[in-house]
Design a protein around this nucleic acid. Structure first.
Length: 440
RNA sequence: GGGCUCGUAGUGAAGAGGCCUAUCACGCCUCCCUGUCACGGAGGAGAUCGCCGGUUCGAAUCCGGUCGGGCCCGCCA
């Protein structure tokens, strides 16, 4: 029976059988140390028998093997225990030299990003790399826990769609048995439809954008954590998102200390559970940024990237939070979409916000216009055709009773990137897709 | 799409007209080494310096083009 690396220390004095990949060889003459990697980490094996060592001659890191050995408590060994009197069995010999290092940190310099990503299939075995994706999995788990705790139902919406659904972002088009299909640029309409079924829903699925963006924060395919909540107001929505971020970060802080250490992540500066993330309006931020930098973005409908970086730094130092909710979005703007709800008191503003964390937007939140007549009017006003195949079946649901509702689209990779203090979303993506990359 | 930048062994870097027959580190091969954990030591293999053209007595180095990256901006989340 197989013993995992994490369980070895529970079998001191006994013979165990481990299986995994050769991760490191250190030959000291009469004594050889090897590390065997499995899904929980590394086991150190000590080999004295020359014949056993000889089995590894010419074999490279990545060789799949099993080892039978006696567990010995040993303070000098990583983890406090190691295997002695080892008998090796090579299961899959690997003679090819690794194309990229597995046992040492890889370069994450922007100039070397291409090499890092070209060699992903093997590079992901590197413990520093796999730590990123353990955190990604933990972040998803934390979201799911948060949603479960708050009575959400998980859904999955289609990604092959009849035609463009929202406007704004460019969509990918592809042949669909002679018709034109598009790849979903969001789960927007479907999650809203599902509010009519379950009130509170979420999904964590890919989203596709055909934007020609070449930046450290854009990809053509990325995972969105989409949430939609019925019977809710803007204030409550912002609190849900803020609490969600805090609980996600706390979960990673608690469960992934090694990854945070490995990536030299600075301490998180966030409000305590239940406290509010600071809120500032676009106008306020434009003004503060102008005062601080003499750079003028007042009058612009959106924040400039430099402002997003600056305001997070500001709130970190002055308001105890490196996350901030940006409010006060104008409704007469390209940023206003037809399904957004205008503010009742001030129709010049939309009931929406962006959640910024460590310098970038990680989520967009809004209340949706749930009243059929107003929704149709807003769609027509922005040049949409309510009778088109992309809209009509989805809009019909508003005739059958939709409560006030709102939700968010939240970028998984950006969140992981910032949690681990990486340079680019692509570093937080197993196999990123961008304007220049479709492989591996 | 615009501006700016960068392409040197498998990987990461140095070299900025002749000292380059291209240097170093990791990795790889051979040998030595009984407590390594970035093991150490000795030796070795591995690069037509992204590609094409030009300037020059001479180009990895200067110029032009081209291909491929990166960063920022725009678009966008």
């Amino acid at each position: 029976m197989r013993t995992l690396s994490s369980e070895v220390k529970d079998h001191i004095g006994k013979v165990v059988h481990i299986e995994g990949w050769l991760h490191k060889k250190r030959l000291l003459g009469g004594l050889t140390f090897i590390n065997v990697r499995d899904r929980h980490g590394l086991v150190q094996v000590v080999i004295q028998d020359k014949n056993e060592v000889e089995k590894l001659r010419g074999l490279q890191i990545g060789t799949v093997l099993s080892v039978d050995g006696t567990v010995v408590e040993e303070p000098r060994a990583p983890g406090g225990a190691e295997l002695h009197d080892a008998k090796l069995t090579v299961l899959i010999p690997v003679e090819a030299e690794p194309i990229i290092e597995i046992d040492k940190p890889l370069s994450h310099k922007p100039d070397n990003l291409d090499t890092l990503l070209d060699n992903r299939p093997i590079g992901l075995r590197n413990l520093q790399e796999s730590a990123i994706f353990k955190v990604q999995a933990k972040v998803l788990e934390a979201f799911r826990t948060y949603f479960a705790d708050n009575d959400f139902t998980e859904i999955n919406s289609p990604k092959l769609l009849a035609e463009a659904t929202e406007g704004g972002a460019e969509v990918f088009k592809l042949d669909y048995f002679g018709k034109t299909a598009t790849l979903a640029q969001s789960a927007q309409f479907y999650k809203q439809i599902m509010v009519g079924v379950f009130e509170r829903v979420f999904e964590t699925n890919p989203t596709y954008r055909a934007e020609p963006s070449a930046t450290t924060r854009h990809m053509t395919e990325y995972i969105t954590i989409d949430a939609e909540i019925g019977f809710i107001g803007l204030e409550e929505l912002l609190n849900y998102a803020g609490n969600c971020l805090i609980s996600v970060v706390n979960k990673v802080r608690q469960d992934c200390p090694n990854a945070l250490k490995m990536w030299n992540v600075p301490d998180f500066v966030l409000p305590k559970t239940g406290e509010e993330i600071p809120r500032l309006s676009i106008t306020e931020i434009h003004g503060m940024f102008l005062d601080a930098t003499k750079e003028d973005h007042t009058g612009e409908d959106d924040l400039a990237p430099a402002e997003e970086r600056w305001i997070c730094d500001y709130t970190k130092k002055n308001l105890g939070s490196e996350a901030v909710l940006v409010t006060g979005w104008p409704s007469k703007s390209k940023t206003f979409k037809f399904y957004h709800r205008k503010n009742e008191q001030d129709p010049g503003l939309a009931d929406r916000a962006d959640l910024l964390f460590r310098g970038i937007e990680i989520a967009t939140l809004s209340m949706r216009e749930h009243r059929y007549d107003r929704l149709i009017a807003q769609l027509k006003n922005l040049g949409g055709d309510p009778n088109s195949a992309g809209y009509a079946p989805l809009l019909s649901v508003y005739k059958f009773g939709m409560p006030p509702h709102g939700g968010w689209g939240w970028g998984l990779e950006r969140t992981v990137e910032k949690i681990l203090n990486l340079n680019s979303v692509k570093e937080a993506t197993h196999f990123p897709r961008d304007i220049n990359r479709l492989s591996p």
